[in-house]
Write a protein that binds this DNA or RNA. Sequence first.
DNA 1: GATAATGTCGATAATGTTTATCGTGATTAT
DNA 2: ATAATCACGATAAACATTATCGACATTATC
Lengths: 155, 155
Amino acid sequence: MITLKAKYALKALTTLADERAADGEALRIETIAQRSGAPKRFLEHILLDLKRGGLIGSRRGRNGGYELIKEPRTVSLAQVLRLIDGPMAPLQCLSRKAYQPCDDCPDEAACRVRAVLGGFYDAYVLMVESLTLADFMADSRPLERFASLAPAAGE
Amino acid sequence: MITLKAKYALKALTTLADERAADGEALRIETIAQRSGAPKRFLEHILLDLKRGGLIGSRRGRNGGYELIKEPRTVSLAQVLRLIDGPMAPLQCLSRKAYQPCDDCPDEAACRVRAVLGGFYDAYVLMVESLTLADFMADSRPLERFASLAPAAGE
DNA sequence: GATAATGTCGATAATGTTTATCGTGATTAT
DNA sequence: ATAATCACGATAAACATTATCGACATTATC
């Protein structure tokens, strides 16, 4: 499960990406809240996170608002999930950006769970890094690129 | 992140699978705790969950203990994760075994987040269902079967 | 049948995470 | 000035995670 916060973030980013595609203005929090369905006061914090992450920009004061400052196809799902929900790895000892040894593991190299999930996580990362905000916008079939996986299910 | 509880469960199952492969006896909680590194009193509950899930069997009383009652290659990672951590879907509205409409979504069919993550989750499920306890045991290279994914990273 | 070994299982609790809401301050256009 | 708007720390309710404990049930053995 991704958190609801991350879901709101993706909806907000999609809203901003749509607006950008339409050559629109910066959008107020209120407007983003309405279009994305996120609670306004909660969304404030989410937008701040996205801003700190360099994905969106803001203007304060009258006529202020938020706008996307990256090309949608350069913003990966992985980037957003890491920014909002933190490390994605199934085990902390497998995290690329936030590695930490697991407290319960005396010998990391001997850990079978780590070995198996490590291989799995490699594939996982390829997927979430190849999905981008652009995939959330139009009527794309973004995951047909993973169709090659299907044969693996047969075994 | 999978929970520590799920990690303990996988280590315990691997321990039991190893014992089974060696034609060993049922193992006491204490012994499983030592071999898997899980706290004994916490492990109790985990083993109960695994028993209720039909993966292991137990004998009470003197000379009691736990043993794996399934062929390791018939126990998927997905099964264990669902049993211990609950639904795996990135959104509850995408869960196969525990579907529920998302509270924040007025129109599920129009939800772009759902559409994109849905495609992603399909691939994810194929992976976790094709990994089995057998992959955790020997010196296997379980994830080479997902090597076909690699080209997708190039774009 | 008494005893010791062992699984069963509900209660409790410390800690952290998630999902918010609120008040106040800072900035900007008019 | 004033009104509109973002910035951001404080707070809190609800829930999840990670345990530990005590008491009970079952079984083998003496």
